[in-house]
């Protein structure tokens, strides 16, 4: 082993340096082979989460202004797409197609009970997660990635700024908070979308819809709903910040980072959604009975 680490630097030419003193453009970044790369990224994201949490609880608490600004940016970007997507989708998928399943069973008057499943448990949460990831997460990732490839993040670090505290912590908590806030709004909107389908397409009364909805709406659903979207927000924040902070390779690198961040966030949202719903339905059997 001793011979392998011998220093013979004088004989070799530095990488990227041609013999005539010319410089060659740097080679495109080459990561680890695929499975190792995945493990590296997962570890990096976990590490970033832990660092963020530690930075959040340690003084000085100087990230409040940035936190409010990020909350406002998320609201500004995601509000209209989220409302639009949820209204249209809840009218179509659970309202019309779900209604045709209930029409098969001749119980379209129970569409309100279907809405508990469709909106509160499934649709509102993952549309929320996807729109926040697709609109706010991409913007955060593009912002951080552009700063990274222009070496602004390194410059900030040289100036003695704690990057985790000034950049990541506010985004982490802003996405977590705004995902939860939007989720309640989103759930309400999706209920309205289904109510419209209920009244216009299936010709049922709004009172029947509301009464079957309210008699099936349990606290376990709300608790799991909140827990789920809170975790969605944190997952999206960590993935997008990690990918943005580790962007490399110019303009193409920023685009690639945003692309990967969206894909990883979407996959994480869906896998986590399935796991937590299985847990909810298994652990609280009363959520799957109709009253």
């Amino acid at each position: 082993m001793a011979t392998a680490t011998g220093t013979n630097a004088g004989a070799t030419v530095e990488r990227g340096q041609l013999p005539g003193g010319l410089t060659r453009p740097p080679a495109p970044p080459k990561g680890l082979p695929a499975p190792l790369g995945w493990i590296e990224q997962l570890t990096g994201m976990t590490l970033l989460t832990l660092q963020t949490m530690r930075a959040a609880v340690s003084p000085p608490y100087n990230w409040g202004g940035e936190f409010i600004e990020q909350c406002w940016l998320v609201t500004k970007r995601a509000f209209i797409p989220l409302m639009f997507c949820t209204l249209v989708f809840s009218y179509g998928a659970p309202g019309v197609t779900g209604g045709s399943i209930l029409a098969t069973l001749a119980t379209t008057d129970r569409l309100g009970a279907f809405a508990v499943m469709a909106s509160v448990r499934e649709l509102a949460t993952w549309i929320n997660g996807m729109v926040i990831a697709g609109v706010a997460g991409t913007a955060i990732c593009a912002d951080l990635g552009a700063r990274k490839v222009r070496d602004e993040l390194d410059a900030l670090a040289v100036l003695g700024t704690d990057l985790i505290k000034t950049l990541i912590v506010p985004r982490f908590f802003a996405l977590g908070l705004m995902t939860v806030v939007f989720n309640y709004w989103n759930t309400a909107i999706s209920l309205v979308g289904q109510l419209i389908a209920n009244m216009t397409v299936w010709q049922e009364s709004a009172a029947g819809y509301l009464s079957t909805f309210s008699s099936n709406f349990t606290i376990a659903e709300v608790a799991f709903n909140t827990l789920k979207v809170l975790t969605f927000g944190f997952i999206i924040a960590v993935v997008c910040c990690y990918k943005g902070m580790n962007a490399k390779g110019g303009a193409a690198g920023v685009g690639r980072a945003v692309n990967q961040a969206v894909v990883v966030s979407f996959c994480a949202v869906y896998v986590y959604n399935y796991l937590l719903n299985s847990l909810l339905l298994g652990a609280f059997p009363e959520t799957s009975t109709l009253r």
Binding site: A251, V254, V258, N259
Partner: peptide
């Protein structure tokens, strides 16, 4: 690079 990132976010 900022433009590419923004275009990606917009397309989403």
């Amino acid at each position: 690079p900022v433009g590419v990132g923004e275009a990606t976010a917009r397309s989403m």
